[in-house]
């Protein structure tokens, strides 16, 4: 496992913990898209079914379980514990616009036409677009709280580090996961506009607000 992969996973974990910590401390989930969080919970659920079929490593198993827990606790905070603070009027992205093409594509383009493999492929395609309801919400309200932007930054950083991980794996192991790489590139592109705003505004101490 190369350094980009480890840093990518840690960045992913940090993003989820930042979000959970923010909701927990402020007892408020305004500005967070519950729909994106449901999609991420669905991504982990459909991808990590191999917890029951394949053992890869202790690291792999522990991280999968932690990711699943974080995703479900976040969804529970938004729709359960702190639902009164959830800004549902601004979380209006139509999920069927994402789910229908993603389901269709995972049946058409996969490594193996088996239920587990189609679900894994579905999770890869879905992850690449799961952040869109959150980005849509920010563009609708025109602003985001600083910790929300740190969350998005580390989530985007995780994607960028995975790209470096794939380049390294291709060089050293000749490993090339076409489905993951193509989806990963698409996913990273979605963060570019946000990265620009993050560097030009948030890192200079300003709140992220759109003109």
């Amino acid at each position: 496992m190369n350094v980009f992969r480890i840093l990518g996973d840690l960045s992913h974990l940090l993003a989820m913990i930042l979000l959970l910590g923010k909701i927990w401390r402020s007892k408020c989930c305004a500005g967070i898209s519950g729909k994106s969080q449901i999609l991420f919970a669905l991504v982990f659920t459909t991808r990590y079914l191999d917890l029951f079929t394949n053992f890869i490593s202790i690291y792999n198993t522990v991280m999968k379980v932690v990711f699943l827990l974080c995703a479900y606790v976040t969804v529970y905070m938004i729709y359960g514990k702190f639902r009164k603070t959830f800004d549902s009027e601004n979380d209006t992205f139509r999920l069927e616009f994402l789910l229908v093409p993603v389901i269709g594509l995972s049946f058409l383009e996969n490594y193996n036409f088996t239920p587990l493999e189609i679900l894994w492929t579905f999770s890869i395609y879905l992850e690449s677009v799961a952040i869109l309801p959150q980005l849509f919400m920010i563009s609708k309200t025109g602003e985001a709280e600083t910790i929300t932007t740190h969350y998005l930054f580390f989530l985007g950083l995780y994607r960028a580090l995975y790209l470096a991980n794939w380049i390294r794996r291709y060089q050293t192991e000749n490993f090339y996961d076409q489905i993951a790489v193509v989806s990963g590139v698409v996913q990273t592109i979605f963060y570019c506009d946000f990265f620009y705003l993050y560097v030009t505004k948030v890192l200079k101490g300003k709140k992220l607000s759109l003109p």
Partner: peptide
């Protein structure tokens, strides 16, 4: 990619 070996990435 041979998916029968499992997917090692998260």
């Amino acid at each position: 990619v041979d998916p029968s070996a499992g997917h090692d990435e998260l």
